[in-house]
């Protein structure tokens, strides 16, 4: 099975996250990461879901069945910018700090807190780069770590916006009454 990155725009209503996740859970797939936050349009949230799926097309269609889902794209094969952030608290006694500082510089990571025996590092970058940094830094002793999961955006002019939906919100579908 191949890993897929799905971007979804959803109405910001209670329960919508549960509906999206439930649809994936129903098929017994494990979600590798899921990031949700505000989009450019008020009232519309944007999700990036990374999951191993066989038939993504079918799942995308089923996501569209959810009333609050506005737009779904599988961007796995698109030219995309993908980013992830990780915060990690390292075991960092004074003697080890120069090495850690040097590594953070190489990876463009930031030291955001220094304690008596700890350092908190913020690392942002492509998921591969973040993973690479974690691998390198792990031998020093990671006491705590939190990754945000990836967020993704297609490069260039091609967009994935909610504008069209919000504009046409008042022109809901025609009713076609049944005959018999």
């Amino acid at each position: 099975m191949k890993k897929h990155t799905i971007v979804a725009l959803v109405q910001d209503r209670p329960g919508v996250l549960s509906r999206v996740v439930g649809l994936i859970r129903r098929r017994g797939f494990n979600i590798e990461s899921l990031a949700v936050g505000h989009s450019e349009t008020p009232g519309v949230s944007r999700m990036t879901i990374v999951v191993e799926w066989e038939d993504v097309e079918q799942v995308v269609k089923q996501l569209y069945r959810l009333i609050e889902v506005l737009k779904v794209s599988d961007v796995t094969h698109d030219p995309i910018v993908e980013r992830e952030m990780a915060l990690m608290k390292l075991h960092a006694p004074p003697a080890k700090r120069p090495e850690i500082v040097a590594l953070t510089e190489v990876f463009d990571a930031k030291i955001v807190d220094v304690g008596a025996n700890t350092m908190v590092i913020e690392m942002t970058g492509s998921p591969a780069k973040v993973q690479n940094f974690i691998d390198v830094i792990r031998p020093y002793g990671i006491k705590e770590m939190m990754r945000t999961g990836r967020i993704a955006m297609v490069r260039g002019a091609r967009g994935h916006t909610a504008e069209e939906f919000v504009e046409s919100a008042n022109g809901h579908a025609e009713r076609v009454p049944a005959m018999n």
Partner: peptide
């Protein structure tokens, strides 16, 4: 009431 269902537009 003005229905606001931007994600629900069945195609007939």
């Amino acid at each position: 009431i003005k229905l606001d269902l931007p994600g629900y537009k069945p195609n007939y």
